[in-house]
């Protein structure tokens, strides 16, 4: 188990926890006697604009995947279905100014400027595992804030049972949106309790710096216990809804991509096994890693799905 922490912690504990986590990381690295484990973090700490951001709770003391790998192997169909091409083509996206439209079952709908959102929501670092539905994984030190904390400021009504997210639609720049590979704009959704869960964050940075465009700048969702396609990029709209929203991959292939999309080695994709994952950046001779249920975050999130048949609600 990566994370020893239970989900129900007091906000007053967070700072201490953060200090503890970052210390633990330092000690762990030192104890391992591996300078290499610490060096990237320290080197980036000198350059990154988020160098001073503390490691938050729920962050696992994992050694991040190489930045080069994380930024050159991206699924961003808005630009290209080829991972390398999408990394390059995404550079054309203008990520400032940026605003997020908040609609639906909230007392305070409106168009919120990204700078204001970032001012209102203190940033923290979360080192999470990221598991793609294509059976590869990586470890990314995200910079962001809990989604639930942001949503609370918009004052969801008692009818708000689901949250829908929408990616920017701009086929002039996002040339992949001119094709019919998926229905554009890309949308994703969460149940409200999933959205409010403290593991769920909105990320605006990674590796102590701003989020690269191919990784979903300037604002993306990160739900670490779900397959990567749930963690929608370049979010421009958030709607709170009473009914379950449609999601892009579910519309494209409903038998293959469900609304929940929880990482689960016991439930295969109809066309491939989900029991193992290729860890990005590992040696060509390295064996694949055994995929963990809920991507290793079961202790925190399994209770959200108690009594549900996860084979049916995949």
């Amino acid at each position: 188990m990566l994370i020893k922490r239970k989900a129900n912690i007091l906000t007053s504990e967070i700072t201490d926890r953060a200090v503890f986590e970052s210390r633990r990381r330092f000690i762990k690295a030192a104890a391992a006697g591996s300078a290499a484990l610490m060096l990237p973090t320290l080197a980036e700490a000198e350059n990154g604009i988020y160098a001073d951001v503390l490691t938050g709770p729920y962050s696992a003391p994992l050694s991040p995947t190489d930045y080069e790998d994380v930024t050159s192997y991206t699924n961003y169909y808005e630009f290209s279905t080829n991972k390398k091409d999408s990394s390059r083509l995404a550079q054309a996206l203008k990520t400032r100014p940026w605003s997020v439209t908040v609609e639906g079952e909230v007392a305070r709908p409106g168009i919120y400027d990204l700078e204001d959102i970032l001012k209102d929501n203190p940033l923290e670092e979360r080192i999470y595992r990221f598991r793609c539905v294509e059976a590869w994984s990586m470890i990314v030190p995200w910079i962001g804030f809990p989604l639930g904390q942001m949503l609370k400021r918009f004052e969801p009504t008692s009818n708000a049972k689901f949250v829908e997210f929408t990616t920017i639609y701009n086929p002039d720049v996002m040339i992949g949106q001119r094709s019919g590979v998926l229905e554009w704009p890309y949308t994703e959704g969460l149940r409200i309790d999933e959205a409010m869960h403290p593991l769920t964050i909105m990320a605006t940075g990674m590796y102590d710096d701003e989020l690269p465009k191919q990784n979903g700048a300037p604002l993306r969702l990160i739900v670490p216990w779900k397959y990567g396609f749930k963690s929608i990029k370049a979010v421009v709209k958030i709607r709170l809804l009473e009914n379950m929203p449609d999601t892009a991959w579910n519309k494209s292939a409903p038998r293959e991509y469900g609304f929940y999309a929880n990482v689960n080695p016991e439930v295969s994709h109809p066309r491939w096994s989900q029991k193992r994952e290729r860890v990005l950046g590992s040696s060509i001779f390295a064996a694949k890693r055994n995929t963990e249920k809920f991507n290793g975050y079961g202790e925190q999130v399994a209770s959200l799905y108690s009594g549900m048949d996860l084979k049916k609600y995949y």
């Binding site: 066309r271 096994s273 193992r276 390295a286 694949k288």
Partner: peptide, 21 residues
Amino acid sequence: ILDLSGSWSAFKDEVPDSPYI
């Protein structure tokens, strides 16, 4: 050899679940 690391259990886990394989 590389993807399944020559592992029979990996083969048994993955191949029957994958029509394309």
